[in-house]
Write a protein that binds this DNA or RNA. Structure first.
Lengths: 190, 190
DNA sequence: CCATTTGCCTAAAACCCTTAGGAAAATGCA
DNA sequence: TGCATTTTCCTAAGGGTTTTAGGCAAATGG
């Protein structure tokens, strides 16, 4: 019987595609097996279990996002960098909703520490080099940016802003203007 | 055989408690049935299906959140209102992580339109009455606040800010200061 | 007090997860 | 090349969740 050539890599990539097509929480070991026309049990030599598959998809998504962000940020600073990063983030979520959901999948502390998530955090911090913030305000700002990007994209993906004026793109642009303004005029401790 | 006294209401409340204890996506029709010491099939006279259960838990959570927000906002305005709303939001998520996750559960358009989610959006808009914003900036600001609150709480719940200085409470406070400042100095269209 | 409605049950089919053990294909070393 | 080893995929099987169909007994109400 000819072999299918399964690999952890290929399985994870297939899982990521599946996530984009049917949603991250519809990604199942069985569905991936079907996609390779292979029996379910066969996947268990390449994956520890169902949770392992999801974690790996999450790591893939984080790495892809970090790569794109890094490329977008190269050679930019200040508002330019802020806009580029935001654009990548939102675009990725819209083009790959399943992968984006995967990237939000909770990871245990050590897995998270070894993930591309830390690279994303570093890139976020790098954006702030174009603004005049010192610790601890820089960290607060990193957290604010992370919250806005994640929050906005997540609400938008859930359909929160559809079918209502003004359209989402306009809000996104104006919110970035506002954040830029805020970072340039960060309030002192009251 | 004595009856268990099942009700859609009771099932949904039990599901919400279960969500807080073991996580929203571990909430299962079977688990709720076990909690009432009843056979699974019995629940299907009170719930259409598994998705129905989750949707109802989501609606319950949204309603609870809206109630608390409304109470917190009564008699407050400006930064006071902003802080009160934010406090309720974050507190609810920390005290009821499963319900909070449920509140983020995607709803189809009509269900969402009939949910307490619109009340929450109205309350968010009410906060902005204390600031000098006109349309469409007011809508942009509503979306920004929604994004920050949801994003921050969601990242925090996922463990994003734990084990790193400064602590999360401090960032939360300073981010609210920053938002207040931003709303008072909302930038004009460039 | 009996008829009807309601509530919970048993049964069963379909799907997913996971482990154990086997057979064939690929690999590698003599 | 030939044979032992490893790898890959399979069958088998146990256990869990979802959902529908049909039945009996408890509550309700005229």
């Amino acid at each position: 019987m000819a072999r299918a050539g399964l690999t952890t890599e290929r399985l994870v990539r297939a899982g990521a595609e599946l996530a984009d097509e049917v949603g991250f929480d519809q990604v199942t070991v069985s569905a991936v097996a079907r996609r390779f026309d292979v029996k379910v049990a066969s996947l268990y030599s390449h994956l520890r279990n169902s949770q392992d598959l999801k974690t790996r998809i999450a790591l893939l998504a984080l790495a892809e996002l970090a790569d794109r962000a890094a490329e977008a940020l190269a050679g930019r600073s200040g508002k330019d960098a802020l806009g580029a990063f935001a654009h990548v983030y939102r675009d990725y979520a819209r083009a790959h909703p399943g992968r984006y959901a995967a990237a939000r999948h909770p990871l245990d502390a050590e897995t998270a520490a070894g993930s591309a998530g830390v690279r994303i955090a570093q890139l976020t911090r790098a954006i702030l080099r174009g603004y005049d913030l010192t610790e601890p305000d820089q960290t607060h700002a990193v957290r604010l940016l992370g919250s806005v990007f994640h929050g906005y994209v997540s609400l938008e993906t859930a359909g929160g802003f559809s079918h209502s004026a003004p359209d989402s793109q306009e809000s996104w642009t104006r919110i970035l203007d506002a954040l830029d303004s805020l970072l340039r005029n960060w309030p002192a401790q009251p």
